[in-house]
Amino acid sequence: MTPDGGVALVTGGAGAIGAAVCLRLASMGLKVAVADLNAESAMEVAGSLSGSGHMGFAMDVADLDAVRGGVDLVASERGPVDVLVNVAGWDRFIPFVDTTPDFWDRVIDVNYRGVLNTSSCVVPSMLERRWGRIVNVASDAARVGSSLETVYAGAKGAVVAFSKSLAREVAKSEVTVNVVCPGPTDTPLIHGMAGELDDGDRFVSALTKAIPMRRLATPDDIAPAVAFLASADAGFITGQTLSVSGGLTMA
Rank of each mutant, 00 (worst) to 15 (best):
A42F: 08
D140I: 13
T100D: 06
D65I: 11
A39K: 10
A35Y: 07
V123P: 12
L84F: 13
S52D: 12
L127R: 13
V45P: 11
V137Q: 06
F57D: 10
A138V: 01
D109E: 15
A142K: 01
D60R: 12
G114F: 03
N117Y: 10
D109F: 03
L37R: 15
G56C: 08
Y112P: 00
V74Q: 09
V137Y: 02
S50A: 12
M55T: 13
S125P: 01
A161F: 00
V97F: 08
G154N: 00
S52L: 09
T118M: 08
G70L: 04
E40R: 12
G145C: 03
D91F: 15
V137T: 07
L49H: 09
L49T: 06
G56L: 07
A88W: 02
R68I: 06
L127W: 03
A161T: 14
V159G: 08
A88H: 06
M55L: 13
W90G: 14
R106L: 11
A58I: 04
R78Y: 00
N117L: 05
D98M: 10
V32Y: 06
V97H: 10
W90N: 12
L148F: 14
R113Y: 11
S125D: 13
K156D: 00
V123W: 02
V144S: 12
W131H: 11
E77R: 12
P80C: 02
W104Q: 02
P124A: 11
A39G: 10
V137I: 15
N117E: 07
F96A: 14
T150G: 15
A58S: 15
V34S: 05
M55I: 14
E128W: 02
D102G: 13
V87D: 14
